[in-house]
Each structure stands twice: as structure tokens, then as C-alpha cells.
Design a protein around this nucleic acid. Structure first.
Length: 578
DNA sequence: GCCGTTTTCGGCCCGACTGTTTTCAGTCG
């Protein structure tokens, strides 16, 4: 798929045009094209072939032609034309807080500044002083901005941000002045990474609430502290903002600060067409305020259903809300068990008894014990002999459990030639078989795809674990053709996993939506190696919700009986190969 | 550059803050 490459190019065109001071609307147009292509579930090359590019909202003839040019020639002349003489380094200067396109362009024109070193030198030599629009304060802010830019971390995983926010909110709730409080922003939307933490509250003493926020023990730097807004940097390196608003504006503020930007822009366009105006203070008709206490006010007045935060990415949710066809999203409470866990028989840190106990505390009805298979020596993978022993132990434990069942399983390696690490005779003894790739990541697309499909076609394999192998902001994953994998899963009743482990979150939301469209079932599994990791089910459910999944799309919402029959069905229909 | 239940031309989301200016541009969320 060239979607990402094309999106990147349009983003770059927008950046350069911005620097050149081009028409804002044209720039936004490129940005919108970049975002919409990045989020596309279809392959852009297929759309180009079928002459369907202009069906995508935000893609007109001009953009479509540029996409086709890139697909056929590998080049986009528009980009080469606008980027002539402007380095990516210079464009990157706009990333420095306080420096926008106008200032960067001016510094370039007046002082020939093209990169970070230039600008630092110019400040040191006092060359900025006296330039148009630049005063003492501005220079001070640029210096701070550069400092921030240098130390600023990348977006952090939701798995890191989520517990931090939970902890902060729990603590602030202890403050009697706080009435309502909750997270907003990309965290509330359960995006896989978050840039900063946004929290919204109501209460009758803003200054006091903000004070309790900026003086928390984990605060390393106070960036702002007023009566309605506090902004701090936490020891984890991430920035956190707390806003205190009037009760009557809480819903509107929540809607506004939850985003996404695209969702809000689309919503406001719609409001405007209907003669309304939306802001963080409410929804208005002329001067008259029509609502804002509750988030649902805004959606209701616009004639649509309330939209769950996880769907607010401008991927068709607004249209669906108008047509009242939004999915009834899966809830955490629908989850009846965890389908991928490791015990200390392989590389886990707890006994499966301990894991089971924790699973019962979470209210589950079942839990899968899926230790690694023999080839994965590094993870103390089980030989057939040891696995048989483990099965015996699990059977014994199950006899003493009431209303809870441990399911016997293996996370069996898909070897580099596509064969499985255990014989079918062994796999037949298990309740659930999870197959996964742990080696040969660099294989060519064709080969690794065939390898995975071979595993999918095995009649005993029920779930493919971490299907793309990516590690968020660490590893891109193997070059597997997901389209073909989805087709193979659809044909064979094989499920794909959402691995909930915070740096995996694999499948991602977009592929989940694709899977659902093809009728491929999903397993939401934590891949826990310790009881402390089993909470991450909440992250996986968040990703599933972002992927528009409903409870019937997810096999661990099934009762134990239904889950077992899902796993057995494939054995009956599949060809035996042993 | 996109788009159309007012439009094929002329619009395109909204508001706050800051610093600079003396009425507003730039930046940010």
C-alpha cells in the first residue's frame, strides 16, 4: 500500500506552501487529503485503478491526478516544484513552539536562517532584535520554544498515559471543590499514542483546583497556572493540562477538547449550514444559547445521535450518526475472558493459578493459558512433553474451579517455512490454538504473507496473534499483505488478535474496521506475562471501539460454550493434514 | 484545492492569548 507515502507527500506540500504564505484554504485542502489518505481502509492503488479516487471526501480532480502520477511514476511533480530551494530542515523549524510559518519565512528572508543552528546563532549574536514584529518577549519565547522542542518527547503510548491520567483524576476527585472531572483529548478517544494529557473539570474554585493540580508530586515543571487553566510537565516527560470550566459549559467544552480536530471541523461546518454556531461554550443560534451543559446537547440539536469519543475521527461517524446507523460498540463489560496469556511455564512471571485468580477477580468466565512453543528457546518455549504435562496440571486445577475455566492452549510459532512448531496431533489436544510469527521478520512480503496464510489454513489454528508484528514507535512490523490475510481468515473462520499490550496494539483500529467489513472475527487479548498486565484489556477494547467493533465481532464476548464451538467448527470443516 | 437543498463562484470552523501594534497578525488548541 502506498497510502502512507502519498499522505506524507501531501503533508509535506502543505508544510512548504504554508511557509511560502500560500492560500490557507489550499493548504488545508492538502492537509485534509493527507489525513484522509492516511486513515483510508482501502488501498489507494486499487482505488486509482477503479477510478474511485474522487469518491473520497476531500479528494478532487487535482489531488487525484497527483496520486495517479505518483503511483505510475513514483514522483509527484507538484512537490518537487514547490519544495525547490527549501530544505526539510527549514520546514521543520515551524515545529518549534512559538515559531509559525510567518516568522520562519521572515527569519529566512531577513537573516538567511535555514535551520536550528542558524537560529540559535542569530539569537546569541543578538541579530533578532529590531526585526519587524520581534520584541524582547518574543525572543524569550523562541528560546523557550527551542528548549522545549529539543527536550520534547515524541507522543507517548496510551498504555503509559492511561494509568497516569487515572491516577491524577482519582487524586483530584479527593479535592472537595472538584465537582466533575474526566479526561478529554486523544486519550478519551483511546488513540494509540497521545501527545499530551487533557483533563477537564468543573468546580466552584478554579484557582484552588488548579493549584492542587500544579503542586502534585509528579510535576517537574509548571508551564502555566491560572484560575481556569493549569499546564505542567510530569516526570514521565509528558505535558498535562487541566481546565476548569463552568458547569453550564461542561458538555460543550468536553466535546470541543475531545476532538478530533477533523471531527470538530466537520461538525462545525454542518452546524453553520444549519444556522448554528458551535464553540467550547455551547451551541448557539445567533446570540441565543441552545445547549452546552451536556455533550449530547450539541449532537442532538444538530439532529444526530451522540457519537462515542472513540469514533470521532471523521471517518464517516457523523454521517452514520445522522442516519442513526452508528454501531453499538463493544463495552469492557462484554468481555468474558482473556485469550492469550503466559505463565511461568514459559516466559511469564506468575503461575497460571495466580493468573486465573486475577482473571476471576476481573469477573471473567474463562482464561486461556498459551505458553510459547518449543522453537522459541529464548522464551523457554515448551516441548510437546512439557506441554502435555501442563495440560494435565490445567485439567487438575479446572476440577477445583467453579464457574471459571482455564482453556488449554499454545502460542505456537509459525516457523520461517510456514509450518507450525507442533504437530497437528499435539494441537488437537488443545482447546484453543494461537499461531504467531516470532522470527524471520525481514522476509519478503510474498513469502511472509504465504507463511501466515499457511498457518491460517491449518484446521487447528483459531487465532493469529499480533498479526502485523509492529511495536509502536520502535518497529514497523513485518511486511505482510493484510488484505490477503483477511481474505484467508474470512474463508477459514480464523480470528485475528488485537494484542492489548501497550506497545503493540496490533491489529490497529483501521485494520479492525477492515476485518469487520469482511466478517473476520477478532480476539481481544492481553498477552500478559504477569497479573499486573491484565488490565490492558481496557486498551484493547478501546482499539476495538475505534475500529467500530460490536460485541458480536469479538470472540471473547462469547460464552464458554460458544467460544469452544467457534474453535471446534474449523476442525470439522478443515482438511486434516497430519 | 474542494465543494454545492441558497452557490459551478466564492466561500471554506472558532476563539483565546500574546506580543506587538495603536487596531491587528501570528500562533495555538
Amino acid at each position: 500500500m502506498k497510502n502512507h507515502e502519498v499522505a506524507l507527500l501531501f503533508g509535506k506540500i502543505a508544510d512548504v506552501l504554508e511557509l511560502k504564505g500560500e492560500n490557507t484554504f489550499r493548504i488545508n485542502s492538502y492537509r485534509k487529503a493527507a489525513r484522509v489518505i492516511e486513515d483510508l481502509t482501502e488501498d489507494i492503488e486499487a482505488l486509482a485503478r477503479d477510478d474511485k479516487l474522487t469518491n473520497i471526501p476531500g479528494i478532487g480532480k487535482g489531488t487525484a491526478d497527483k496520486i495517479i502520477e505518483y503511483i505510475t511514476t513514483g514522483k509527484m511533480s507538484k512537490y518537487e516544484e514547490v519544495a525547490k530551494g527549501i530544505s526539510e530542515e527549514t520546514v521543520a523549524l515551524m515545529q518549534i513552539p512559538g515559531l509559525g510559518p510567518k516568522t520562519v519565512a521572515m527569519l529566512n528572508k531577513e537573516l538567511g536562517i535555514v535551520n536550528l543552528v542558524d537560529i540559535e546563532n542569530a539569537i546569541r549574536d543578538g541579530k533578532l532584535k529590531g526585526l519587524f514584529g520581534i520584541g524582547e518577549k518574543k525572543i524569550e519565547n523562541i528560546v523557550k520554544g527551542i528548549e522545549l522542542y529539543k527536550t520534547s518527547q515524541q507522543r507517548i503510548s496510551i498504555g503509559m498515559a492511561y494509568p497516569i491520567v487515572k491516577r491524577i483524576i482519582e487524586r483530584l476527585k479527593q479535592n472537595p471543590k472538584v465537582k466533575e472531572i474526566q479526561a478529554a483529548g486523544s486519550l478519551r478517544r483511546m488513540k494509540e499514542t497521545v501527545g499530551d494529557i487533557d483533563i477537564l473539570a468543573t468546580g466552584n474554585d478554579g484557582a484552588e483546583i488548579i493549584k492542587s493540580f500544579v503542586t502534585m508530586p509528579e510535576v517537574t515543571q509548571i508551564l502555566a497556572s491560572g484560575t481556569t487553566k493549569g499546564s505542567v510537565r510530569l516526570e514521565e516527560g509528558v505535558q498535562a493540562d487541566l481546565r476548569v470550566v463552568n458547569e453550564e459549559e461542561y458538555g460543550a467544552a468536553l466535546q470541543y477538547f475531545t476532538g478530533s480536530k477533523d471531527h470538530n471541523v466537520h461538525l462545525r461546518e454542518l452546524a453553520k449550514k444549519k444556522g448554528y454556531k458551535i464553540s467550547e461554550y455551547g451551541i448557539f443560534e445567533g446570540e441565543k444559547k441552545l445547549g452546552g451543559r451536556h455533550e449530547s446537547d450539541i449532537y442532538k440539536i444538530l439532529g444526530m445521535d451522540w457519537i462515542p469519543p472513540e469514533l470521532r475521527e471523521n471517518r464517516g461517524e457523523i454521517e452514520a450518526a445522522i442516519e442513526k446507523t452508528l454501531p453499538k460498540l463493544i463495552e469492557y463489560s462484554d468481555i468474558k475472558g482473556d485469550l492469550h496469556n503466559h505463565s511461568n511455564w514459559s516466559d511469564g512471571h506468575c503461575t497460571f493459578e495466580e493468573m486465573a485468580e486475577h482473571a476471576m477477580k476481573r469477573g471473567y468466565a474463562y482464561m486461556v493459558v498459551s505458553d510459547h512453543s518449543q522453537s522459541l528457546h529464548i522464551a523457554n518455549g515448551l516441548t510437546e512433553e512439557r506441554l502435555l504435562k501442563e495440560i494435565d496440571e490445567i485439567d487438575k486445577l479446572n476440577k477445583n474451579l467453579k464457574g471459571f475455566t482455564l482453556l488449554k492452549a499454545s502460542e505456537v510459532d509459525i516457523r520461517t517455512d510456514g509450518s507450525l512448531d507442533f504437530s497437528d496431533r499435539m494441537l488437537e489436544k488443545l482447546d484453543v490454538v494461537i499461531a504467531a510469527i516470532h522470527s524471520g521478520f525481514k522476509q519478503e512480503k510474498e513469502k511472509i504473507t504465504q507463511r501466515m496464510i499457511a498457518a491460517i489454513q491449518n484446521p487447528f489454528v483459531n487465532i493469529i496473534a499480533h498479526p502485523t508484528g509492529r511495536l509502536i514507535s520502535k518497529r514497523v512490523g513485518y511486511d505482510v499483505d493484510i488484505e490477503k490475510v483477511l481474505d484467508a481468515c474470512a474463508e477459514t473462520d480464523t480470528a485475528l488478535e488485537i494484542n492489548c499490550y501497550y506497545d503493540r496494539l496490533d491489529l490497529n483500529d483501521i485494520y479492525c474496521k477492515k476485518a469487520k467489513e469482511r466478517g473476520v472475527k477478532i480476539a481481544i487479548s492481553t498477552d500478559s506475562h504477569h497479573t499486573d498486565q491484565m488490565w490492558m484489556m481496557e486498551l484493547g477494547v478501546g482499539i476495538a471501539r475505534r475500529g467500530w467493533l460490536e460485541s458480536q465481532d469479538v470472540i471473547n464476548t462469547f460464552s464458554l460454550e460458544k467460544l469452544k464451538s467457534f474453535c471446534k467448527k474449523k476442525r470439522k470443516h478443515g482438511k486434516r493434514t497430519m
